Simulated assay, not measured.
Amino acid sequence: MFDLELLRTFVCVVDAGGFTRGGERINRTQSTVSQQIRKLEEQLGRPLLLRQRAGKSIHLTEDGERLIGYARRLVQLATEAHSVVCAGAEAGMVKLGVPEDFDVQQLMTLLSGFARQHAEVRLDTFNGLSVDLYARLEGKDIDLALVKRDVGQEPGAYPVLASWPEHLYWVAGYGLQSIVSPVPLVVFGQGCIYRNRIIHALESAGRTWRVAFSSQSLTGIQAAVSANLGISLVPASAVLPSHRLLREQEGFFPVPPSELALVSASRLMPNVQRKVVDYLTAHLEVSNVIKKATTAH
């Protein structure tokens, strides 16, 4: 069996780039660190580090390269287990799915605010389209998810804990003044609610369309619209000053609002997940206001 203390020393030495700096991270002298590395090498029967005394630098041997990834995972898992047990029953980890087009700044504000109130809880986030997040919920890969859906949609297998309406806007770049059929579309991949809304709206109006650009990234969608590759349908928070709003006179009529819903993988939630739900319900806001710089044009 591996000695976790020796593995921790090994990881610190590699990450710090030397015995002395590695020792400083774990409050050990250079000689003690050298002894621990030597002991680990003796247990394995092979060298892990190549020492270059002149430059005071170290390099991994081939066996060291094989071990370092496992060592990091073992040390991280041991640290996590220790933290959870010592923190008591209230500690834990919650995995939250977040839509691909969720505002990054708002997400960071939410995460930092939650961390200040609940330092004992680790909150991991996973990005994806709503269809991907539902698949993760089904596979129990995540505990909670913020998903895009039709307003009032039946909850199905996953209970809706809270919801926020969001208004959608047709946008194009300022260089794309005349939009003729087939209408060039800038869209997310198949399964995206915005993509479905665009196609349904255009076909209902008797207009033909073509996919000019597709991306799994909100940044990619925004940039493609700004570059005049095509038109798109986005929430207010995703409209940039480099986008112009398409008008009814151009044949782009308002579409029904969608909603951002917080859903759970299970109806029975542990207390640690309830903390996340309560915080998001109290602090999450969906922006339906477009910047003045955009609406002025």
Rank of each mutant, 00 (worst) to 15 (best):
H82N: 09
S178D: 11
T281V: 12
D278S: 14
V234G: 04
I221G: 01
D101N: 14
G251E: 10
Q216R: 13
V98E: 00
Q35P: 00
Y134F: 13
V187N: 03
A89Q: 09
L48K: 08
K291M: 10
I179W: 02
V255N: 12
T29H: 13
F253R: 15
V84T: 07
A236I: 07
R28D: 00
L110S: 01
S237H: 13
P235F: 02
T294N: 09
T9V: 15
F114C: 07
L67M: 08
D278N: 14
R122L: 12
T20R: 15
T20W: 09
D143H: 14
V171P: 09
A162H: 14
Q76Y: 06
Q177I: 01
E42P: 04
V33S: 05
V131Q: 06
V263P: 07
R195L: 03
R149M: 08
P182Q: 06
R66T: 04
G97F: 05
V85L: 14
R38T: 04
F253C: 12
E42Q: 15
D278C: 05
S264A: 15
E138Y: 11
A238D: 07
L176R: 12
V277C: 07
E100Q: 10
R247S: 15
A89W: 00
E138P: 02
Q52T: 08
L77A: 12
A115V: 02
Q106I: 01
L260V: 12
L146P: 10
Q273S: 13
L185G: 02
P256L: 12
E203Q: 14
L233W: 07
V75S: 05
I142D: 00
L40Q: 06
N271Q: 14
A227H: 11
S215E: 09
T9M: 02
A78W: 07
I221P: 04
L4I: 15
V75D: 02
R72N: 02
H283P: 04
S226L: 01
H82F: 06
I199P: 06
R21N: 09
G69E: 11
L4R: 06
S130G: 12
V33G: 07
Q222H: 01
T9Y: 00
S215M: 03
L96I: 03
L50M: 04
Y279C: 06
T125I: 14
G220C: 05
L176G: 06
I290K: 10
L133C: 05
I179Q: 07
W170E: 01
H297W: 13
R38A: 11
R247D: 01
